[in-house]
Design a protein around this nucleic acid. Structure first.
Length: 586
RNA sequence: GCGCCUGUAGCUCAGAUGGAUAGAGUGUUGCCCUCCGAAGGCAAAGGUCACAGGUUCGACUCCUGUCAGGCGCGCCA
């Protein structure tokens, strides 16, 4: 509909250029928008105002000329000039009504498009360190990333969802050591647990499992454990040095094989838990990509070599540095430390290099906003490697602050004091959680008030939309109770009877769904769909209150029922994309 | 200090590429169930779009500066 109108306007401009009403070299970007006010018609364009200046005419005069040059067509009922020079288009009512039948015919397929056909896109999201359960902050990334991915898929892109598992590095060593220490405690060894260790309950659980399976196989004496270990912070020492010494001690005492056993049991338990958690949240991945495999495949050293060959690496203070300042970063970055170990950044270079090489048209990273300083250096690395850095799109998600009893909940993974995603889901439900997380633009801070979500869950906006869906289902149940049937083809035959303002408004809204979906996908702003669905539900509720659907006249009845089941379908389709259910009864 | 994000109704937030009278929810105040689910609808009230300049036919939107809040600036991950 919109596209047809735009091409009509293109023809208009061309014919005006042919008859010299317009300069021939003008290539106007034709903008057509849906109107908010019905008195402005169905669509409006500012074309006349944009063309007025180059053509040396005033906008309203230009508008008249444009209207005179619009080719004959059966789409438009009327065209008006309004305000400073807007051209308002009134679509012939019959042509907008066909949307109802389209929706009914296409059902859950309705609104999907092939916009991105043949294009591959990769979305990496959550990717939280597997050092503990997901918390509410991760939940936002999960809901947002999953929704962005699903939206792209809905407009025809081939989507690959990926979780980057940081299964290498110091944080994981701290976790493994924490588990082992808890295990030692359970086995009766007496010592002070390091302040820098992971203190969550899940650490005990994993330790318990290890004890159950391996009994005292990994037990060492107190002396073996703590001799020559530098003091922890409460005893006037340095907590970082203390934990690092304990890690080294764990590796020495346990030996590679046993250390790996403890390490992997922690990793596997936690990743399994995360995977399970996300699955219940309606979030599934095509790939769980292991950081360790990067090293196994020597991709990290390959990436550094490539940078070196390209002349972007230098040595200083015994370390290898990437000259990222050549590509707009604020300072150069170390890729290999003086102790010979590569940095986390080096792994990330390798990972992004490999992602780009996999041949995606777009590579999307969903990151917490606290990583924003990291964007320029990753982009710099891709440029230095000669890869197309424009393919990388980093979406930064601001923090979700949790409020309980009016107080901001302080969260720290290390101390174990945080609300998990699982707890949140159990408290407010998956539907409300998924919905709330994407209700706001991602760069907007999100205040998640737990008390409000719990105590007033009936006021949840998600219920308003779900209720509209359930209401239509209820009408159809009523119909059955009255021993009436709904004849869809009779409804279509009489669809022209839908002339009430409320009906026209609904039909106009239904016509906007596909466009909303496409915009929301391309802008990676699923909240646009949230707002659309709220508006659609609102108009459906209004219609419900203003008119009776189950009326004696079968022609009107069937036509109206066609309209409301079309609305129900669109609500269901939209909610599904958001990962929210569309219940028939509430 | 430098960089990124944010500042719109009492509160929480929408306002894509500059466009018509800046919109919702919530809260406040009135109405509407002999009628398909009142988890609903209708209406009222509520605004210096942080502030000051600039660009133009036109600025919440773009530019510059100021103020306020959040976050980030490791040979951590």
């Amino acid at each position: 509909m919109k596209d047809t109108l735009i091409s009509l306007l293109k023809q208009t401009v061309e014919s005006m250029q042919a008859n010299n009403t317009l300069p021939a070299d003008l290539q106007p970007d034709i903008q057509l928008s849906s109107t908010k006010d019905p008195s402005h018609g169905d669509f409006a364009t500012n074309l006349a105002m944009m063309l007025a200046k180059p053509a040396g005419k005033n906008p309203r005069e230009m508008a008249t000329l444009i209207i005179d040059n619009i080719p004959a067509n059966d789409l438009l009922d009327n065209v008006d000039i309004a305000g400073p020079g807007f051209i308002n288009f009134f679509i012939r009512s019959g042509s907008t009504l066909s949307i109802v039948q389209n929706i009914i015919d296409q059902a859950e397929q309705f609104g999907l498009s092939e916009y991105g056909k043949g294009k591959k896109i990769q979305v990496e999201f959550v990717s939280a360190n597997p050092t503990g359960p997901l918390h509410v902050g991760h939940g936002r990334g999960a809901a947002y990333g999953a929704t962005v991915a699903d939206f792209y898929q809905a407009i025809g892109y081939q989507v690959h969802r990926e979780y980057y598992v940081n299964d290498a590095g110091r944080q994981m060593d701290i976790l493994a050591t924490s588990i082992w220490l808890r295990y030692l405690e359970k086995c009766g060894i007496d010592f002070d647990f390091p302040v820098n260790g992971y203190k969550g309950d899940y650490v005990y659980d994993i330790a318990t499992e290890i004890e159950a399976e391996y009994a005292d196989k990994f037990v060492f004496s107190r002396d073996e454990l703590i001799s020559d270990i530098p003091a922890d912070e409460p005893h006037g020492g340095d907590k970082e040095l203390h934990i690092d010494a304990l890690i080294t001690r764990a590796k020495t005492l346990l030996g590679d094989e046993h250390y790996r056993t403890v390490f992997d049991s922690g990793l596997n338990t936690i990743i399994g838990d995360i995977r399970d958690d996300l699955k219940h949240f309606g979030v599934e991945y095509q790939d769980w990509y292991s950081e360790r495999t990067l090293e196994d495949r020597q991709l990290v050293s390959q990436a550094i070599e490539r940078l070196e060959k390209a002349g972007h690496i230098y040595q200083k203070d015994g370390a290898l540095w990437f000259r990222s300042t050549d590509f707009g970063d604020e300072k150069d970055r170390v890729v290999k430390r003086d102790n010979g170990q590569t940095t986390y950044f080096a792994s990330d270079i390798a990972y992004h290099m490999e992602k780009i090489e996999r041949g995606y048209d777009i590579v999307i990273d969903v990151w917490g906003a606290d990583h924003h300083g990291y964007v320029p250096r990753v982009r710099a690395a891709l440029q230095a490697l000669g890869d197309d850095a424009d393919k990388l799109k980093v979406l930064l998600v601001q923090f979700a602050n949790l409020f309980r009893g009016g107080e901001k909940v302080q969260m720290s993974t290390r101390s174990g004091s945080f609300v998990t995603l699982r707890e949140l889901r159990e408290e407010v439900g998956n539907d409300a959680a998924r919905f709330f997380y994407v209700m706001r633009k991602c760069e907007q801070h999100l205040d998640f008030d737990l008390d409000l979500a719990k105590s007033q869950s009936n006021d949840n906006p998600v219920y308003y939309i779900q209720y509209a869906h359930a209401r239509v289902c209820s009408v159809l149940r009523q119909l059955k109770e009255k021993n009436l049937t709904h004849d869809i083809s009779n409804g279509q035959l009489n669809i022209g009877l839908l002339t009430e303002p409320h009906e026209s408004a609904l039909i106009k809204k239904l016509n906007q769904y596909a466009d909303t979906l496409e915009t929301a996908a391309l802008k990676t702003e699923p909240h646009l769909m949230v707002h659309y669905l709220r508006e659609l539900a609102s108009e459906l509720h209004t219609y419900y209150n203003a008119h009776q659907f189950i009326v004696d006249d079968a022609s009107v009845r069937d036509a109206r029922l066609n309209l409301i089941i079309a609305c129900r379908q669109v609500i269901a389709n939209g909610l599904k994309l958001l990962g929210v259910s569309a219940p028939e009864v509430m």
